[in-house]
Nucleic acid binder design. Structure first.
Length: 533
RNA sequence: GCCCCCGUAGCUCAGUGGAUAGAGCACCUCUCUCCUAAAGAGGAUGCGUAGGUUCGAUUCCUACCGGGGGCACCA
């Protein structure tokens, strides 16, 4: 590995100067091309402690490395306050190309640091009381893309959906369906959405409104999620834990551990002993469990099924719920580090700059189904994977639906379509791609070509960081960059036409490496790679 | 009041403990006899404020200001 060669050379040079090399040698791609291909700040980080002037130490290190430079290195320089900058021959990027196409879509930028880790990712988990709205797509595509990243990094991943099919919300929904069926207004606290009346009209006489409505809502959600490309291995029903006794068993477990007490007729969890602001009710004074107790039982169940690390994807409106859940699991003897919550800030929907409020209860909802009808799953996925979930996202439905020029999905997919088009043209021209070993990649020296390869060189690091930081949007950023660089290459560097045959061959392999990179990136996002547009 | 997230270009957002902070949109110009112009090239402005840590802070910490969300025997 090139990087290992560079860090090794730095380590040796530091030791030769009498400086103890640190465990981790900083090595990065400089933001500016004139600072070389790789740069290390290790001298600045160590000079002071070793009693050296940073620039003098850097000069020593550079002299040592220059005397016996690692493969591909053309020049080593001291720069700025003590950076050690490496200038490499383009051959290092040709090695990257070979690496990409030999490992291929399945192997390049794949990691094993998650091997042996069993991770359960629970996301969406919307109440079965209505259709999914446009805002729900954010958590859905985030959770799915995160799962894809975890898988690519070696984890064993299980996607799961928790169905809250018991309790006051479902009862209110059933009452609303029944009222609409009877031609009445929905009761106080019921669901006002138009869909309630529409669904009620589908119901057969004699059906139980709550059960029928529950099944109707769940089927609707499953179908829409499937259209979005999101599939769950487990749809976990809260009710099944009543039948299985899991809720009672969880309460008994908590009691045994002495973290439960009775007060005012209710049963409380001593969550404040575990970092929560206050104690929480597990069983109301009317004997009904709160939402919390079954949820604790559910998380306990996930762990008992063998998933050692739990990731929940929640909306920001549930953020305050995190400490009590973590406290409950801690109280059950679970390592708090095994429970992780990814909070996505809420989506603000607009129509031509006017905010659209989303509420199932007041009835003003933009159904995810309608959004999929208009723009398709690829556009929806990419839009909701554009930015960090830590910041609020504003989506203008007019922009996304009518002027899709604003939607980067076309830009990215067009790059793949162009690659496919080149393939067709090449076939028409009767040109065949020679085996990689027979092709002279050293002909690839155009800046446009090298830029594509530089992007590909970064993909493994980008994937690892995106996974570790739970930040799938970094893959989107990377794919957009690669697509942009490919468009630049396509514009300036013809593969066919007035090009020497040897260069055509080299460029065909560059195109192939781009294709592999796009497929990996788009695959992680769950966005398709069309052959034509 | 307490807790969480955010504050970067006119707008929507990337970005990093480092050396001159990027992209898209919008605006103005260019580029198709050649692999799809859904493309490419050129053009301006910016890290909310004040301290601190550090060789170095837009990035980490604190306070303040501004925006969003949450503080139930609802879920």
């Amino acid at each position: 590995m090139l990087r290992d060669d560079l860090t090794a050379s730095l380590r040796v040079a530091l030791a030769e100067a009498g400086v103890e090399p640190p465990a981790a040698i900083g090595l990065e791609r400089p933001a500016r091309r004139e600072h070389g291909d790789w740069s290390s700040n290790v001298v600045m980080a160590t000079a002071k402690g070793a009693g050296w002037n940073p620039r003098e130490l850097a000069a020593e290190v550079v002299a040592t490395i220059a005397a016996a430079p690692p493969r591909h290195v053309e020049a080593v320089e001291v720069a700025g306050p003590g950076f050690v900058n490496f200038r490499l021959a383009p051959t290092w990027l040709h090695d990257v190309l070979v690496d990409v196409v030999t490992r291929g879509e399945g192997g390049y930028a794949r990691h094993e640091f998650g091997a042996g880790r069993k991770v359960n990712v629970e996301f969406v988990s919307v109440n079965p009381t209505g259709p999914l709205h446009a805002g729900h797509a954010r958590g859905a595509v985030f959770g799915d893309a995160l799962a894809r990243l975890l898988e690519r990094c070696g984890h064993e991943v299980h996607r799961e959906y928790y169905i809250n099919d018991r309790g006051t919300q479902l009862a209110a929904f059933g009452a609303s369906i029944a009222a609409r069926r009877a031609g009445d207004e929905v009761p106080e606290g019921g669901y006002q959405g138009d869909y309630v009346a529409e669904w009620a009209a589908e119901m057969a006489d004699g059906d139980d409104a709550t059960e029928w409505g529950y099944a109707r809502a769940l089927a609707d959600q499953r179908e829409v999620l499937a259209r979005l490309g999101v599939e769950f291995a487990t749809w976990f029903s809260e009710r099944t834990m009543i039948a299985s006794g899991a809720i009672d068993a969880t309460l008994a477990d908590l009691r045994e551990r002495g973290v439960v007490y009775e007060d005012g007729g209710a049963t409380w969890l001593r969550s404040s002993d575990y970092g929560d602001d206050k104690d929480r009710v597990l069983v109301r004074s009317d004997g009904e469990p709160t939402y919390l107790l079954p949820d604790i039982a559910y998380h306990r169940d996930k762990l008992r099924r063998g998933w050692e690390h739990l990731i929940d994807v929640w909306g920001a409106d549930h953020h305050g719920y995190v400490p009590r859940m973590r406290a409950a699991l801690h109280a059950l003897g679970v390592d708090p580090a095994a429970f992780e919550v990814a909070i996505n800030q809420l989506v603000k929907l607009e129509r031509g700059g006017e905010e659209v409020r989303l509420s199932k209860r007041t009835g003003d909802i933009i159904e995810l189904r309608a959004l999929l009808d208009e723009v398709g799953a690829d556009a929806v996925r990419l839009v909701f994977l554009l930015q960090s979930i830590d910041s609020r996202q504003t989506v203008d439905l007019d922009v996304i639906t009518t002027k899709s020029m604003d939607n980067p999905v076309f830009y990215v997919q067009y790059a793949h379509a162009r690659i496919a088009s080149i393939g067709r043209k090449v076939a028409e021209a009767g040109v065949t791609r020679a085996p990689l070993a027979a092709v002279d990649l050293s002909l690839l020296v155009h800046e446009r070509e090298l830029d594509v390869l530089r992007s590909l060189a970064e993909l493994p690091d980008v994937v690892a960081a995106a996974c570790a930081d739970r930040a799938p949007h970094r893959i989107t950023t990377w794919v957009r960059e690669l697509a942009g660089r490919f468009h630049g290459f396509y514009h300036d560097c013809y593969v066919l036409g007035d090009v020497p045959a040897e260069l055509t061959q080299a460029r065909l392999w560059l195109v192939e490496s781009s294709r592999v990179g796009l497929l990996i990136g788009l695959g992680l996002l769950g966005v398709s790679a069309p052959d034509s547009m």
